[in-house]
Write a protein that binds this DNA or RNA. Structure first.
Length: 619
RNA sequence: CGGGGAGUAGCGCAGCCCGGUUAGCGCGCAGCGUUCGGGACGCUGAGGUCGGAGGUUCAAAUCCUCUCUCCCCGACCA
C-alpha cells in the first residue's frame, strides 16, 4: 500500500482493496453497481390506487417499498438519493458551525413530563413501558433531549453560541399518512438546535440556518419559497417554512409576486378594508325563511355578502365555547382564531352545544348569547349595520352593531387570506399555490431551557436561561418533492447532485459478437477507477427495456455501447434531459463522460442559482 | 375519527351480482430455441392458506356476520 492509498484509507475515501475483495461477484463496485444484481426491481405499472406522482415513480423505479401505512423501506437506489441529500445537509450544517451528534429515539417519559409535552401531545406520540414498567416514548422530536444535554454541557457564557444537529429517526403516529415519502409516520429528520446568550444571538443563528437551508434546497434542485408560518405546538416567537412548489402539497401558500411577501395560509394576512363610516341604524328583526347560509340570505335580501355577519362556532380544548363573528364575504382562519383565544385545539361545535349558549345553527349571531367567548374579526368591527342571525330559525336582525347590540371579548384579525386579496405589504393581489413543507426554522426562545433548567452564567455570575432555536429538514420528503418537480412521462429526472448514480451504462448485446460486452466491461472499470458512479445495465435484456429503465430511474447521463456504434469506434452519450444523443470515440469515452458530467454540474449550479448570492432573510 | 374504495401468484387484474370440475389472464420468474437500438416470439415449467375467523350449505373466492390490513377524500398535523 503506497502512502496515498494509506492516506485515502485514513480519510475514509475508499478501500484500496476493493477490486480484489470479491465485491464484484455481488454486482457491487466501489461506487457502482451491476443491474443484474441490483436489489430492487423496476415495475412496469404502479398499483392502481397510488396517485401521487413521486410515489408512483419511486415505486416503479424500485427505490422504495412499503412495509405498512406510513412505513417505507428505502431500497438501494432510493437510499443513495436520500443519503446524498443528507450529505448535502451535513455539509451546509457544518459550514455554519453545526456540530453533529446523535440522540436516542427512545426517551424516558419523564423528560417529556418536564417540558409539559407528555400531557400536551396527543396520540401522535407512541408511548410504551419498558420491562421495569417505566413509561417510555418514541421521539417525535428532540427539543427535550437536546435541552437536557445542554443543561449538562453548557454552564458558561464563554461556551456560547453553539449549534448542534443530528440526523435521526422520528416517529409520529399521524392519523393519516399518505403520498409515499411525502407523509410518513417514521422518518429521518435533520434537526439542529442553536444555543445563544440573547435574542441577537438567536437572530444570528436563525439567519445562518435560513441561508444554509436556502443553499441546501437549491443544491438538490428544488423550486421553493420561504414563508412565514405558525409556531404551532413548538411555541416560540418566529417561524418560517421552506415550501417546495407542488400540486400534491398539503399546504396552501399565499404570496405576492410584486413585493415578495409569502406566508402559509394559516398565518397569511392581507390589507383590510377601510372602516365604513355610517350612522348606526336601529336594530330590526326581519323574517328570512330558508336562509341558513350567507349566500341564501344575501340573495333573499338582495344585498352583498359583505353586508352580513357570519357566525362560526367551536369548542375549545379548554372547554370554552368559542363564538367567532366575521363578515359574510370572509372565512374564519382557524389557526388565527386558535392563537387569538389561546385555545390549543378547536373543534366545530355540535348543534346541541350551539343551542346551549342560546344561539341557533344557520341563524346565529352574538346578540343575546351567553357563556361563550365572543371573537370578532376586524371586518365586523369596521362595518356597521350588518345583517346577522336572530338566533331563531327563519329570522335575522338588520343593523347589528358591535358595542351597541353585543360586546366582543376579543377583537382580532381572524380572516383567511384568499387568492386575489390585496397584499398586506404592498396591496398587489396575492397569488396562491400548493406546496410541500421540506424544512422549517423556529425561534424557540426559552420555552424549553426554562422548563428544564438549562442555564448559563454570565460574566457577573448571574444565571440566565439559554436562548434556543430549532430547525428541521426532512431529507426523504425533500427527495420526493424533487421527483414531484422533476419528471416526465418516462420517469424521474434527477439532478446530478442527488442522482443515485451519475451514469447509466447500457450494454446492448449482439449475437455472435462479444465486443460490446467487452467494451462496456472495460468502460465500467475505467469509470469506476476515476470515481464516476455507474449504474451498469449488464442484464440480458432487449435495448428497449434497458433504455426505459434508465429513463424511469432518471440517471442524468446515459452511455450506450452497441455493435452498431462500435463499427464506427463510437459510444453513444445522451443526457436524460436531451432529445438527441451525441457520439464520442471509444478511446475518449471516459474523458468525454467526465467532461459532460462536469458540464452538467456547472449547468445545474447555474440553474439552481448557486452562483448568485442567497437572498437576505426578510421577516 | 367520518366518508368512499380495495384485499385472488412477485406486479397489474378478471372471476363474486346468479355458490357447482383441477381458480383464470397479462407481465414478471426458471429452462430450451429463435431474435437483438425504445418494454420481442415460440415451446415447456414453477408459483395461489382467494387477507383472517366464524357461519349458512351436500358444496363457498362467490352468500351472511365479525375482524384485520391497505389506498383515496375529509378532520388532524412542526
Amino acid at each position: 500500500m503506497d502512502a496515498q492509498c494509506a492516506w485515502d484509507r485514513l480519510t475514509r475515501r475508499i478501500s484500496c482493496l476493493s477490486s480484489a475483495n470479491g465485491a464484484d461477484s455481488f454486482g457491487q463496485g466501489k461506487n457502482t453497481v451491476r443491474m443484474s444484481h441490483l436489489f430492487g426491481r423496476t415495475l412496469r405499472a404502479a398499483p392502481n390506487d397510488v396517485e401521487i406522482v413521486s410515489h408512483q415513480l419511486m415505486l416503479r423505479a424500485g427505490m422504495i417499498q412499503p412495509l405498512g401505512s406510513g412505513l417505507i423501506s428505502l431500497l438501494p437506489l432510493g437510499w443513495r438519493v436520500v443519503n446524498k441529500v443528507e450529505q448535502i445537509v451535513r455539509e451546509e450544517m457544518n459550514a455554519i458551525g453545526g456540530q453533529e451528534l446523535l440522540m436516542p429515539v427512545v426517551h424516558p417519559a419523564d423528560i417529556w413530563r418536564e417540558s409539559g409535552r407528555y400531557e400536551q401531545v396527543g396520540p401522535e406520540m407512541a408511548r410504551f413501558k419498558d420491562r421495569a414498567d417505566r413509561d417510555m416514548v418514541l421521539a417525535l422530536t428532540h427539543e427535550e433531549v437536546v435541552t437536557d444535554l445542554a443543561r449538562q454541557q453548557i454552564s458558561s457564557y464563554r461556551q456560547l453560541p453553539m449549534i448542534v444537529y443530528h440526523l435521526q429517526t422520528k416517529f409520529r403516529d399521524e392519523p393519516r399518512s399518505r403520498g409515499g415519502l411525502i407523509r410518513v409516520r417514521e422518518f429521518t429528520m435533520k434537526d439542529s438546535y442553536s444555543f445563544d446568550l440573547d435574542e441577537d444571538g438567536l437572530d444570528h443563528a436563525y439567519r445562518l440556518h435560513w441561508r444554509a437551508y436556502d443553499r441546501i434546497f437549491r443544491r438538490i434542485g428544488l423550486r421553493f419559497i420561504i414563508v412565514g408560518a405558525d409556531v404551532g405546538m413548538m411555541g416560540g416567537t418566529a417561524s418560517h417554512e421552506f415550501m417546495a412548489f407542488s400540486e400534491n402539497g398539503e399546504d396552501t401558500i399565499l404570496y405576492c409576486d410584486q413585493c415578495g411577501y409569502a406566508a402559509n395560509r394559516e398565518v397569511a394576512t392581507f390589507q383590510r378594508d377601510e372602516p365604513v363610516h355610517e350612522d348606526a341604524l336601529s336594530l330590526e328583526e326581519i323574517e328570512t325563511p330558508n336562509t341558513p347560509t350567507i349566500q341564501a340570505l344575501a340573495d333573499l335580501l338582495g344585498i352583498p355578502t359583505s353586508k352580513t355577519a357570519k357566525a362560526v362556532f367551536f369548542m375549545g380544548s379548554s372547554g370554552r365555547f368559542v363564538f367567532a363573528v366575521i363578515r359574510g364575504d370572509l372565512d374564519v382562519n382557524e389557526t388565527a382564531l386558535r392563537n387569538a383565544t389561546g385555545e390549543r385545539t378547536l373543534t366545530p361545535a355540535t348543534a346541541d352545544e350551539i343551542k346551549a349558549i342560546g344561539a341557533e345553527p344557520g341563524y346565529g349571531s352574538p346578540v343575546g348569547v351567553r357563556d361563550a367567548v365572543i371573537v370578532v374579526d376586524e371586518s365586523v368591527r369596521d362595518t356597521p349595520n350588518l345583517v346577522a342571525g336572530a338566533n331563531k330559525p327563519g329570522y335575522h336582525f338588520k343593523n347589528v352593531n358591535l358595542g351597541r347590540d353585543y360586546e366582543a371579548d376579543i377583537v382580532a384579525d381572524i380572516a383567511t387570506a384568499e387568492e386575489g386579496f390585496p397584499c398586506v405589504d404592498c396591496g398587489h393581489p396575492l397569488q396562491v399555490t400548493r406546496a410541500i413543507e421540506v424544512g422549517n426554522i423556529f425561534k424557540l426562545g426559552t420555552r424549553y431551557s426554562e422548563k428544564l433548567g438549562a442555564d448559563y452564567l454570565d460574566a457577573e455570575g448571574q444565571a440566565h436561561p439559554i436562548i434556543m432555536g430549532s430547525y428541521g429538514i426532512g431529507p426523504a420528503r425533500s427527495s420526493a418533492a424533487v421527483v414531484e418537480q422533476r419528471h416526465d412521462d418516462k420517469g424521474i429526472i434527477w439532478p446530478l447532485s442527488i442522482a443515485p448514480y451519475h451514469v447509466s451504462l447500457i450494454e446492448i448485446p449482439s449475437p455472435h459478437d462479444d465486443r460490446s460486452r467487452e467494451i462496456a466491461e472495460r468502460l465500467y472499470r475505467e469509470l469506476e477507477e476515476v470515481g464516476v458512479e455507474v449504474l451498469y445495465d449488464d442484464r440480458d435484456e432487449r435495448p428497449g427495456v434497458k433504455f426505459n429503465d434508465a429513463d424511469l430511474i432518471g440517471i442524468p447521463l446515459r452511455v450506450a455501447i452497441s455493435a452498431r456504434n462500435l463499427a464506427n469506434d463510437q459510444v453513444e452519450l445522451k443526457l436524460r434531459t436531451a432529445k438527441d444523443a451525441i457520439f464520442a470515440p471509444v478511446d475518449q469515452a471516459v474523458a468525454e463522460i467526465v467532461r459532460m458530467l462536469a458540464e452538467i454540474a456547472e449547468n445545474e449550479a447555474h440553474e439552481f442559482g448557486l452562483d448568485v448570492e442567497t437572498d437576505e432573510p426578510r421577516y
